[in-house]
Amino acid sequence: MAGLKEIRTRIASVKTTRQVTSAMKMVSAAKLKKAQDAILQIRPYAEKLHEILISLSASLENVEDSVYTQNRAPEKVLVILVTSNRGLCGGFNANISKKAIELINTKYEQQLRTGNLEFLCVGKQGERYLKHRGYKVVANENSLFDELTFDNVAKVAEGTMKAFEAKDYDRIELVYNQFKNAAVQVQTAEQFLPVEMEEQDDDATNFDFIYEPSKEYIIKELIPRSLKIQFYKALLDSNAAEHGARMTAMHQATDNATSLIGDLTLQYNKARQAAITGEILEIVGGAEALKG
């Protein structure tokens, strides 16, 4: 059995750890509220924007003329992996990184084998994960989470859109954690470019709107804006999911530390009782020896 001093040291160490995890939990809980509000506010806007885009494209014959909707054979592929800059958030980073690897192994195995698959990382953890396993990371945008604003994100989105327009890539995939609630994140992989135009349901009600300016002009302006909003929403989703995952992980760590302190305290009391009993037996034995 460990000595009393060693057990006391361990109890003090675990208590310090519990203070750290408890503080991190509270910080993440505060940040989660702000991040959750941001993603819940932008989702309806992004969905309505996409709905308008589909409605307009369904009434146009030459929507495929847009460079962002051109379907090309995916010879060169870019995967944008969104993770966090810091750890201590459970399986948040590992799970989404595995999702990205699963995507390329099932969908882009040929491009990976020929060296035509590259990664753009948003988040240090994902970049470290990929480089450690030998995947090709061409760039990172880890600073986006330092100041997560639409203007900053739009610049990165524009860069990827220009790369697609210049035919540097034929397909761009976006892999990120979608926020569901504080305890649940949904690993999501969606095609960023080219834009997939969904067909409207024939039974859907068609309204005869008057557009000013023309439908063609509106859709030309709408597609780039929709792409930027989609990219921004993905980062807001990941940001909220990260704080939720960290809050949950730190809550569990705090509970585990409390349980461990209880076990160590019981062990300490048993060791102390054994030591006291031993001392009493020594005193009684000495007294008996003096009588003899």
Rank of each mutant, 00 (worst) to 15 (best):
A2P: 00
A12Y: 00
S13R: 12
K15Q: 10
T16N: 12
T16Y: 10
V20D: 12
V20W: 10
T21W: 05
S22Q: 03
A23E: 11
M26S: 13
V27Y: 07
K31G: 00
K31P: 00
L32W: 03
K33A: 11
K34E: 07
A38P: 01
A38H: 09
I39F: 07
I42H: 05
R43Y: 06
Y45C: 10
K48A: 08
S55Y: 02
L56A: 02
L56V: 06
S57A: 15
A58P: 13
E61A: 11
D65N: 10
R72Q: 09
A73M: 13
E75I: 04
E75A: 11
L78R: 10
L81K: 11
V82S: 04
T83R: 09
G87I: 11
L88T: 10
L88Q: 14
G90M: 14
F92L: 12
F92C: 10
N93Q: 13
A100D: 03
T106H: 10
T106W: 08
L112M: 11
T114R: 15
L117C: 08
K124P: 00
K124F: 03
Q125D: 05
R128Y: 03
Y129W: 14
L130N: 01
K131D: 00
K136R: 15
V138R: 14
N140W: 08
E141H: 07
F145I: 01
T149M: 02
F150T: 02
D151G: 00
D151C: 00
V153N: 00
K155H: 05
V156Y: 05
G159N: 14
K162V: 02
A163G: 06
F164E: 08
E165S: 05
K167R: 11
I172D: 04
F179W: 01
N181T: 07
A183D: 07
A183V: 07
A183G: 01
V184Y: 09
Q185E: 13
V186Q: 09
A189F: 03
A189W: 05
M197P: 02
D201L: 09
D203H: 09
D203W: 08
T205M: 09
T205N: 03
N206C: 06
F207N: 00
D208N: 14
F209K: 08
S214G: 06
E216K: 15
I219W: 02
E221N: 12
L222T: 08
L222A: 14
L222C: 13
P224T: 08
P224K: 10
S226W: 05
A234S: 14
A234P: 02
A241I: 15
A241D: 05
H243D: 06
R246A: 15
M247C: 05
T248R: 12
T248I: 11
T254V: 03
T258L: 12
T258N: 11
S259Y: 10
S259C: 04
T265I: 11
Q267M: 14
Y268R: 12
Q273W: 04
A275R: 07
G278M: 10
E279V: 15
L290M: 07
L290C: 01
